[in-house]
Amino acid sequence: MKLSPDETIFWEHGFINLNLTIATTWAIMLVLAVASWMITKNLKKDLQISRWQSLLEIIVIAISNQIEEIGITQPRKYIGFIGTLFLYIATANLFIIFPWYQAPTGSISTTTALAVCVFLAIPFFGIAEKGIKDYLKSYVQPTIIMLPFNLISEISRTLALAIRLFGNIMSGGIIVAILLSVAPLLFPIIMNALGLLTGMVQAYIFSILATVYIAAAVKNTKSMKT
């Protein structure tokens, strides 16, 4: 039994390999990009719009509002990163309704990659917003003694992000696999439905946490004090 889609390798040449994780990710990317392109190529700016456009608008506005609620005043700057995190994870987890599908988020390599992206995005957005000096200063707040703790927290939360998503999705997959062997009728369906719910919740948690970290990094020290 393969616990991770990384283990299903189609092609390998030394360090480079093409496994199920990468292939599934490409498929998800294709679906998302094509669907977006199909819907947005005939966007209407009138008062009456198509249902698909309405759906996309609802999704985009919901993400934007969520980001704003966390405390970021200009959600449009970050919607590309945070929105894509959510949409990718949600889509990847949603596709478990298809038989023999293995979510790429069930691979620790994917979750690590996403956590690394968040880890890199935090200083990127922080420096872009406040300047390198002010950003670095935030690591020695409130005193310099806190510097190691701040650094540890930075790394540990990234690790936690990766492990949390991986653990939840992988466990869901394994539970379904085990139940299939024990009780092949009905139960796997229930567990799959539960897995769907867990997957959505995890997508939400992952993006919200990323937003919180970014918000903390880009927030003004002045506004934080007030």
């Binding site: 990710t25 947005t40 590309g80 949409l87 990659a113 992206c117």
Partner: peptide, 18 residues
């Protein structure tokens, strides 16, 4: 892949919709 997806969705989803 993720960076490419960010670019794709920005190009085809967020920007036109917003």
């Amino acid at each position: 892949n993720f960076i490419i997806l960010v670019w794709l969705l920005k190009r085809f989803l967020y920007k036109p919709i917003l």
